[in-house]
């Protein structure tokens, strides 16, 4: 029988490198460091929020190679093979992405805690479904919990973001 780890006294710190928002980021952390904690506390990208740590609420959703995934259900060590995009990577105050802008226009957030998970999820969704109906928009956000908005204005934000994307595509091509 192998020796189980007695306690954290022997816990090894790994040299981790994860590409986040296009930039390789390094930090030392143990193997058990959740990607959510790695982003928030090791890299100090606190835009990704932690609401339940069992994968249900969706607040911690980030894009992994462009696909939305729960960062609380992934270890940073595993994420090394991938490119991670957080809410900070979707756009800054002076260069917002269409989903961010739509949330402001449509009052799609109140306390803002769940919002980053919605923004990443919707950003990826619209890549694959650029013209959703209201019902499809509602289904697209149905894996994320929000306790403030009743979702109605988030649905509206998805539809508005689709418009904004189309407008922006129109002006840049």
């Amino acid at each position: 029988m192998t020796e189980p780890i007695a306690d954290s006294a022997t816990e090894e710190l790994l040299d981790l490198t994860v590409v986040v928002n296009g930039v390789p980021r390094h930090a030392k952390a143990p193997a058990r460091r959740l990607l959510s904690d790695f982003l928030r506390h090791d890299l100090r990208l606190t835009g990704t929020h932690v609401g339940c740590e069992h994968g249900v609420c969706g607040a911690c959703t980030v894009l992994v190679d462009g696909q939305p995934m729960r960062s609380c259900l992934m270890f940073a060590v595993t994420a090394q093979a991938h490119e991670v995009t957080t809410v900070e990577g979707l756009g800054a105050i002076d260069s917002m992405g269409p989903v961010q802008q739509a949330f402001i226009e449509c009052h799609g957030l109140q306390c803002g805690f769940c919002t980053p998970g919605f923004l990443t999820t919707i950003t990826a969704y619209l890549e694959d479904h650029p013209h959703p109906t209201a019902d499809e928009a509602r289904e697209a956000i149905s894996g994320n919990l929000c306790r403030c908005t009743g979702y109605q204005n988030i649905v509206k934000s998805v539809l508005r973001a689709a418009e904004l994307r189309a407008e922006r595509a129109g002006t840049t091509t």
């Binding site: 029988m1 192998t2 189980p4 058990r32 959740l34 740590e53 069992h54 994968g55 729960r70 609380c72 259900l73 992934m74 270890f75 595993t78």
Partner: peptide, 21 residues
Amino acid sequence: QVGPEGKVLAGGQSLIPILNM
């Protein structure tokens, strides 16, 4: 080598909640 002390991690969507708790 690790026998019953080991657990396979693939997607982790069932396993990691159990580990977190």
